[in-house]
Design a binder for these strands. Structure first.
Lengths: 413, 413
DNA sequence: AAGCTTAATTTAGGTTATGAGTTAAGACGT
DNA sequence: ACGTCTTAACTCATAACCTAAATTAAGCTT
């Protein structure tokens, strides 16, 4: 059923290093004393592991706290400058690259616009490579000190193929683009720096779970509404990808058999009702004025109409809230998460307008037991957090490895 | 993020015992020589672990194979009679209890009918207790030799509450029934025999994954269609439960916002279109003759009508196939499984009739990439496998523990 | 019967975590 | 100021474990 699980006594150390590192990373500075019960290790082992991590330069002291009457405990934290991360957001209109330290504070960024016709693969690769060199130069960080590069892209990322991640971006016209090998071949970064590619929606979700509205949830779904609709599914604290890491395609969930035509070709998808594009389209259909502004301002205009009690706008948004609620009900019924977080630029805009209505609709369509135990909230991070989320991918790997190098990870099957 | 991960050097042994045991359990008799690469352990450790397991009576030799010129390797297998399992199926019309050996071959069974008004909790508890005693007596097995008792029930089982599993069976009128503590209190089985309770659909799914159409799949969804509709979701080889183990409530996925009223109170649920009850209801609505036979024969009659080219029946089933396909498309989009297995008595009946149509519909409603990589098949096990699946719960626990006792598992947080 | 081949066990060596005992560092009371 | 008390962190002996190499076991070939 499952081959290689855990093997040697050496893996133990890695696991324990990882536990200590993770605890310190997420729960701020802690003393060795607090670390012991939190990780389940004995105080002796904590000393041992901490000494090792400190020797590796991953941990540093952070002051001390009096302990009434006794020796004060010295606090420990992860050394934020011991390594660096890069997050790349390949968006609909631009490529953005940011450089972070371990604590994910931004050190440099570079952005390259992508003209509408700009989804030429070569052009995107070139932009990434150039921007990557720029941020490293600006912050004066050697590429060798990078823990890894995370890339968030639109579309489905299939990580199960042998030559590295392959991107299928139906909406941007990418069909089986072997992004990983192309980026590698472009020579922009050293051989040994690992590359992590995933769907942009998922990276944003990961960011939201680590640092935003999802903090502490073991089971959560981040619903992302922009021009399109997607979702990031967190199960047992980690990103769920399914067999070919294309899970979470919530936007193409069927809400109306034989309903509105979606850009995916099917009928009645959630996306055909609640995406910004769809809402505006429907607004135009019932005679709403759209103008030729960009989607963002157009949506804001629609919301303003509704605020001004424009009946048509109100009705449209009511319906949208019902559909969105029904879509969320599906997530609740199928995944039973603790929390559902609505995010994405349109999701935040719409959510601020009608979150209570969405909650009501979700409660009406979902089963009572699970929906009563799920909270539905808005995301705390802006859509810009895609880069943060992308940087999170190598970071997660780093923490899971306990801050050790990746040895000969090529001990394939 | 996650507390207790792995700790001591002792857990290592458990993990390795578990790996050896699992490998032997699922992949038949193997020699020590084959075991080594399969588990990632050295031949020395294999010897060691195997010796320990044999001393514990969990393994036995199973002949030997010549190895041209050398010492023949002796084959090993799990001793099927080293412990026993009980599976309980609390169904819509009866309680069934079966006793199995480790290989899950049936040794005894007992069945108690449940009158229509029979969902009285006390009655069910009494039936379980009685039938349990019967099978143990019939097969002459001491209760102390039981590895555990697995129970499959209708409704949502919340295992997150402190006093043991609680069952919320909306359809059978059970509201927060603390089945675990009630069964314990009934005194039917010794203190130390563990009790595992889960949704019957999920246990059936588990059986299908271990021994049926799902063998070998790491990501699968078993779609169960009977009077109601449910699903069992397997992620990374294990049952997915979500935050309160109520995940997989596929039947109440919305397929038609504002559509047919479902017995859950919401409108447009999948269950309101494709469950046996719903199909027959719709058949009656358009004037089909139903008679007052039980659901099973009524559905068979409908299918016979369609086979005889009764236009109304054909149209109804076409529509049903479309809805079912759309529901499956949702599963594909959201979970991206390798395999979807249609089961449940009505699912098997309907599936045999129109599986190709369902596949077409699913392909039309789901995204191309994932649906091309998912197979949609019928289950291989009959609905009777609920007991097998239930027995699988303690078995999974046993294998995960490496066949060791459960020590002081009360080292709670 | 000696030599060869392959299987399985034993042994030596190296990591690791535990837990008791020790040292470190400061507070408190007289 | 001094000794006592309290708490933190480290050290070291012990036990458990896995690996790799060496050894024993079992059967075939010539």
């Amino acid at each position: 059923m499952s081959d290689r699980e855990k093997r040697t006594v050496r893996d133990l150390r890695r696991t324990n290093r990882s536990a200590v590192l993770r605890k310190l990373y997420f729960d701020g500075p802690l003393s060795r004393q607090e670390l012991a019960p939190a990780t389940g290790l004995s105080s002796g082992s904590i000393s041992n592991v901490v000494a090792e991590l400190t020797a590796d330069g991953l941990l540093e002291e952070a002051g001390s706290v009096d302990s009434d009457g006794g020796r004060p405990r010295t606090l420990l934290r992860v050394a934020r400058r011991c390594a660096y991360l890069i997050g790349v957001d390949v968006g609909e209109t631009r490529v953005r690259v940011e450089l972070f330290d371990l604590a994910l504070t931004e050190l440099a960024r570079a952005e390259r616009p992508l003209a509408r016709y700009g989804y030429d693969v070569e052009r995107v690769i070139g932009h990434i490579r150039g921007a990557l060199a720029d941020v490293l130069h600006d912050a004066n960080v050697a590429a060798s000190r990078l823990l890894g590069v995370g890339v968030g892209v639109p579309g489905i990322v299939d990580r199960s193929s042998p030559g590295g991640a392959v991107v299928h971006g139906q909406t941007v016209g990418w069909d089986a683009v072997p992004l990983e090998s192309l980026l590698r071949a472009s020579g922009g970064l050293p051989e040994e720096v690992p590359l992590f590619i995933d769907n942009g929606a998922k990276t944003l979700g990961q960011a939201e779970v680590w640092f935003g509205a999802g903090r502490g949830a073991r089971h959560a779904v981040i619903a992302l509404i922009g021009s399109g609709v997607g979702a990031c599914i967190i199960t047992d604290g980690g990103l769920y990808g399914g067999a070919h890491s294309s899970a979470g395609e919530w936007g193409h969930t069927v809400l109306q058999v034989g309903g509105r035509l979606c850009r995916c070709g099917a009928k009645g998808c959630l996306e055909a009702y609640v995406s910004a594009e769809a809402v505006l389209e429907r607004w135009a259909e019932i005679g709403g004025d759209v103008g030729d502004a960009d989607e963002e301002t157009a949506l804001a205009t629609l919301l303003a109409h509704a605020d001004a009690a424009d009946e048509k706008a109100v009705a449209l948004l009511d319906e949208t809230a019902e559909y969105l609620g029904a879509g969320i009900a599906d997530l609740v019924n199928l995944f039973n998460p603790e929390r559902i977080i609505i995010s994405g630029w349109a999701g935040l805009l719409l959510g601020r307008h009608f979150l209570p209505a969405v909650r009501r609709s979700a409660a009406a369509y979902a089963l009572r037991h699970p929906v009563e135990r799920t909270t539905i909230e808005l995301g705390l991070l802006g859509p810009d957090a895609v880069t943060v989320g992308a940087a999170t991918l190598p970071l997660a790997d780093f923490l899971a490895r306990g801050g050790r190098g990746r040895e000969s990870a090529t001990a394939g099957h």
